[in-house]
């Protein structure tokens, strides 16, 4: 006699999917649904409120004719490049140095990492006043008697962007250090022993054996830093407010001001779409590879 599965057994089969479904529904609506909506808006004549008059690529062509946007993406390119390179260099150097059986490593590591626990708003506030010529480093040097000392980058259109880089590097380079340190600690000691037996110098040991093995850490650092760079918003708001002038305007601040203060929602949506595409171009292949390996 064939006994059909009873209700409880069938419920057990469906329960897992049932439990997962609210999360999936939320993500589908609030993430992917919203993305579609914003992308759609970027093709409409929305101003202060969403409106559904189709204008094709007009917002995008307007966007790329705006000098404001051009400044934002140029700044983005400079900022992202410097931020990623400097963070990687400092992170890798500190990790290698810390890996030399350093006395006090346990005290140094948390000092390098704590900025990561702070809000970008706090970081921005602190650096804003430290870099302020009126009360910060410049003023300090003057009061110490070095009258000719000048450090006014944060007020200078040419250099203000580099202060954003400085504060951002301060916040994240310790984290990059931790990623590389984990990578270094994961390297098989016997390989190092073998290389030393082969007569490799320290320099060659790192250049030929160790750093090539840190490839996964480099990849992760690149992905995380790139995604942080593109999303940088709070730091600029707190540190420079995008100024002086438009000197530190980034796509994230551009999007916010065009959408919510200048009432150009269509253009704001177009800029958000471009930000998403940039991040997707980096994240999708990475996530795809990560998830496929796990099988």
């Amino acid at each position: 006699m064939q006994s059909a599965p009873d209700f409880k057994t069938r419920l057990q089969v469906w329960l897992p999917k049932l439990v997962l479904s609210p999360s999936i529904a939320m993500v589908l609506v609030f993430v992917y649904g919203f993305i579609l909506f914003t992308v759609y808006l970027s093709f409409t004549d929305s101003r202060i409120l969403p409106s559904y008059g189709w204008v094709g690529w007009e917002n995008y062509s307007k966007l790329f004719r705006l000098s404001h946007w051009e400044i934002a993406i140029t700044n983005m390119a400079i900022f992202a490049l410097l931020y990623m390179v400097i963070c990687t260099v400092i992170g890798l150097a500190l990790a290698i140095f810390l890996d030399q059986k350093i006395r006090g490593e346990g005290a140094l590591r948390p000092i390098y990492l704590y900025p990561m626990a702070l809000s970008f708003i706090v970081t921005g506030t602190a650096w804003k006043w430290i870099l302020d010529p009126g009360i910060g480093i410049e003023n300090t040097m003057h009061s110490l008697g070095w009258e000719s000392f000048a450090f006014d980058w944060i007020k200078n259109r040419e250099y203000a962007l580099y202060t954003v880089v400085l504060a951002a590097v301060w916040q994240t380079s310790g984290f990059v250090m931790a990623m590389f340190l984990a990578g270094l600690r994961g390297i098989d000691n016997e390989i190092l022993k073998a290389a030393q037996m082969d007569g490799a110098s320290n320099w060659n040991l790192y250049r030929r054996i160790i750093i090539p093995q840190l490839r996964p850490a480099f990849l992760s650092a690149f992905v995380i830093l790139a995604h942080l760079a593109i999303k940088t918003y709070d730091l600029v708001i707190a540190l420079t407010g995008g100024g002086p002038g438009r000197a530190t305007e980034l796509p994230a601040t551009f999007m916010y001001s065009y959408t919510f203060t200048r009432n150009q929602m269509g253009i704001g949506a177009a800029s958000a779409t471009i930000m998403l595409m940039t991040i997707a171009a980096i994240m999708v292949p990475y996530l795809y590879a990560e998830l496929r390996e796990k099988r």
Binding site: M1, Q2, S3, A4, P5, K8, T9, Q12
Partner: peptide
């Protein structure tokens, strides 16, 4: 003699 297809492991 009881068909076990579809019966929960605990049963």
């Amino acid at each position: 003699d009881q068909v076990m297809n579809g019966v929960h492991p605990s049963k």
